[in-house]
Design a protein around this nucleic acid. Structure first.
Length: 487
RNA sequence: GCGCCUUUAGCUCAGUCGGUAGAGCAGCGGCCUUUUAAGCCGUUGGUCCCGGGUUCGAGUCCCGGAGGGCGCACCA
């Protein structure tokens, strides 16, 4: 660091203070130039066309009166070629005071070196920012996982894979919006700060509002407010927003994460399944440059439409050799017995038991994209019952690579049924299940004004991005994953 | 919360049986006008995560603590 400060002082003494610079002319990015001049043959140049670009020096190779360096900008990395005879004595001295990590604006023309690399022959340049701290090892980059997450800015500078993944995330979410907007949905933003967090089973974060002198909660879902907007007549709404759940942290859980929730009036769960399948297939195509197969681990998963479809109860039966029948699963006592057979601890509720059984018995086999339809009503408090089977809800979940990717159902719009299910939840809550939220009675009031038949879906965006980018940990698709504080 | 692993130079890592701290890269000084993990010669650089203990002597052994990773548990 001392050496870098000396170089900074040297630049300043020649009137080239990098921190005094206000802006840089940029007429091209590294990526654009690499594409545009792909036709150049070795040693051939395009000296007639001058370009200006800006970025960070990622490496520097000095060879006497010549310097090769790599410039990185948001698109790519481009080699620079600087000759003393082009930039003069002073200019060359300035280059010697530039360190790896410094920010520069350069001007020059493209050529291809005799070893075949497209390179910018620099005719003019200027330091526009100085790195007082050295960059990590040019070859190994930053490996220390802890430092990578804590100092993500460094990770992003030196590890191209990290940047590629996070840039892909940005593109995929933009694509998701474009696709949904194209279907006539309004994007809305509903409050994060609520008096009562509902719409899912999860422990909320609690905070305090000084102005109201009230305890508040951070939302655990956007569901109830979005459906209020369906009551309000917006008909097609969605939100891509941050959700907070005060639970564990591991490779598939971060306390705050991004969820897509979308509601369409006049659709049922089958319409939603169509839409869901089209959306996922589209995103796979974007992620794979037009393909249908996603790399996953060492292999690949095909997202060729149509995806597999199976009934929840059939899946349970098949994966248990017929032992877990409808009768047993839908009976609270029998379901607990199954837990015992599986060697799992007893669950506080029937619903919890079903989730555990499914997780153990069915989920591990759900590798290819599969819609699992017809969840029991006991684990679907906000979903409509099937017309011909009132114990089963009109609901599906999409699984892929054993991860739940989306959860959708025909929304329950009968206020009396909704009130009854909330009452049942109150009992569960009193029985000690802390994840069951307090009922939001105003939501029932909203339903009393009339909600059209509606289908809704929730998609865990981070896990979807993990799938689409073949990331092993949710932290790899988050810019700043939560870390414990030092000290 | 439990178990296993891990923390040494700016970065990536080695460090034997407990004997006084090492390499590569980066940096610094030199040579080099098409290199690309440039090369060659020379050279600087340490809170060995923190706190105790055992010992003549601890990076190394013991106890406690902190951070991180993985697994389990928790978590639609």
């Amino acid at each position: 660091m001392a050496a870098r400060r000396e170089n900074l002082a040297a630049l300043r003494s020649r009137g080239k203070d990098p921190f005094a610079q206000r802006r840089a002319e940029v007429t091209a990015t590294a990526g654009e130039l690499l594409e545009r001049y792909g036709f150049l043959a070795a040693t051939q140049d395009a000296a007639a066309e001058q370009w200006s670009l800006a970025g960070r020096i990622l490496s520097k190779r000095t060879m006497g009166k010549t310097i090769f360096a790599d410039l990185g900008d948001r698109t790519s990395r481009l080699q620079l070629y600087v000759r003393k005879q082009d930039v003069g004595e002073d200019g060359f001295a300035d280059w010697n005071d530039l360190d790896r990590g410094d920010l520069v604006a350069v001007r020059g023309y493209m050529f291809r070196t005799k070893l075949g690399e497209l390179t910018l022959h620099v005719t003019a340049f200027r330091a526009i920012g100085k790195a007082l701290r050295p960059l990590p090892d040019k070859w190994h980059g930053l490996q220390d996982v802890e430092k990578r997450y804590r100092q993500r800015y460094v990770d992003l500078i030196v590890n191209p894979d990290v940047r590629d993944t996070l840039v892909m995330r940005s593109r995929l979410i933009a694509e998701m919006r474009r696709f949904i907007d194209g279907a006539g949905f309004y994007e809305v933003e509903t409050p994060t700060l609520l008096h009562l967090a509902g719409g899912a089973a999860a422990r909320p974060f609690v905070t305090h509002c000084n102005a109201l002198d009230k305890a508040m909660q951070l939302r655990i879902a956007t569901e109830l407010n979005l459906k209020r907007l369906i009551v309000a007549g917006l008909e097609r709404v969605y939100e891509i927003g941050r959700i907070f759940r005060n639970e564990g942290i591991d490779t598939t859980h971060n306390p705050e994460f991004t969820m897509l929730e979308l509601y369409a009036a006049y659709w049922d769960v089958s319409d939603m399944m169509e839409f869901n399948e089209a959306l996922i297939a589209h995103l796979v195509s974007v992620a794979t440059d037009g393909g249908t197969d996603l790399p996953h681990g060492d292999g690949a998963i095909s997202f060729q439409r149509p995806f597999a479809r199976i009934e929840y109860l059939d899946a349970m039966a098949q994966c248990s050799g017929g032992r877990y029948t409808r009768e047993r699963l839908l009976d609270s006592v029998a379901a607990q017995q199954i837990l015992g057979e599986l060697g799992l601890p007893a669950s506080p509720t029937h619903g919890h038991a079903l989730d555990k059984i499914f997780e153990r018995v069915v989920e591990p086999s759900l590798i290819v994209p599969t819609f699992v339809s017809g969840y029991p009503v006991v684990i679907s408090p906000l979903a409509k019952r099937r017309a011909d089977d009132p114990e089963i809800a009109d609901r599906y979940e999409l699984f892929c690579a054993t991860m739940e990717i989306s959860n959708a159902f025909t929304e329950l719009n009968d206020p009396d049924d909704q009130r009854a299910r909330f009452d049942a939840q109150v009992s569960e809550r009193l029985a000690g299940n802390e994840e069951i939220p307090e009922p939001d009675w105003d939501y029932v009031r909203a339903l009393e004004y009339g909600m059209p038949p509606t289908a809704g879906i929730g998609v865990g965006v981070d896990r979807l991005i993990m799938l689409l980018t073949n990331a092993r940990s949710i932290r790899d698709v988050l810019l700043f994953p939560l870390q414990r504080q030092h000290g």
